[in-house]
Amino acid sequence: MTDLTPSSSLPRTVVPGGIVDPVASARAELKAALAAIEIKGNVPRRLEQASQRGIRRTRAFAQRNPIGAAAAVAGVAAVVGGVVWVIARAVSR
C-alpha cells in the first residue's frame, strides 16, 4: 500500500516529471527521499499494516474453509502446547 498525496495519484515517494527549475526539482527529490525514508523506517506502522493484512487473510480463509481453519487452530495449539511442555520438562530437570 502506497501513500498518495491528495492532489495527485502519484505516490509520495515519486518525483513528479516536468519540473524545469533545478531548485524545485531538488526540493521534489528531497521530499520524495524523505517520504521513502519515513515509510521504510516507520516499523510500528509497517507492523500494524502487516498484522491487519494477516487478520484479513485469516478471516477470509476461515470464511472459505471453516474446517481447515479449525484444523489450523488445533494444530497451532498442539505445537504451542508441545513447546511449553518441552520447556517445562527441561526446567524441572
Rank of each mutant, 00 (worst) to 15 (best):
V83K: 01
P6E: 09
S25V: 02
G54I: 14
A33S: 15
R27Q: 10
Q49G: 00
S92N: 13
D21G: 09
E38I: 06
V79M: 06
A32N: 02
A35I: 12
A62M: 12
A28L: 13
L10N: 06
K40S: 15
R45H: 04
G41C: 05
I19Q: 05
E38T: 07
A77C: 09
Q49R: 13
W85Q: 08
V14F: 08
W85F: 11
G75H: 05
T5Y: 04
V15F: 06
V91H: 11
L10Q: 08
I37Y: 10
A36H: 08
A69H: 09
R64W: 07
A77P: 03
V83Y: 01
A33N: 14
A24Y: 01
A62F: 06
V14C: 05
K31M: 08
T58H: 03
L34S: 09
L10V: 07
D3T: 15
L4K: 06
V91E: 07
R27N: 15
A33T: 14
R46I: 14
R93S: 11
A62S: 14
N65V: 03
A50R: 04
R27C: 07
L10D: 13
S9N: 12
G54Y: 12
V15Y: 01
I87C: 10
W85G: 00
V20T: 05
P22Q: 03
S51G: 00
I55E: 08
R56E: 15
Q49F: 10
E29D: 14
R89Y: 11
G68D: 05
A74T: 02
E29F: 10
A33H: 10
S9L: 13
A50I: 03
L34C: 08
N42R: 03
A24F: 00
N42P: 09
T13A: 05
S9H: 12
S51Y: 01
V20Y: 00
A26E: 10
P11H: 08
A74M: 02
R45C: 00
A35C: 10
V43A: 08
A35P: 07
R59M: 12
S92Q: 14
V76Q: 03
R64G: 11
G75V: 02
P66L: 02
Q63L: 07
L47E: 13
N42G: 05
P11W: 04
R64Y: 08
G82A: 11
V79I: 15
A50S: 10
L4F: 14
L4H: 13
L47V: 15
T2D: 14
R93Y: 02
V80D: 01
T2H: 12
I55Y: 01
A90C: 03
A77F: 04
P6I: 10
A26H: 05
S51N: 03
R53M: 12
D21P: 06
E48N: 10
G82I: 14
S7F: 13
N42W: 07
G54H: 03
I87R: 11
V23A: 12
K31T: 10
A77S: 14
P22R: 00
G18C: 00
D3V: 15
I39M: 04
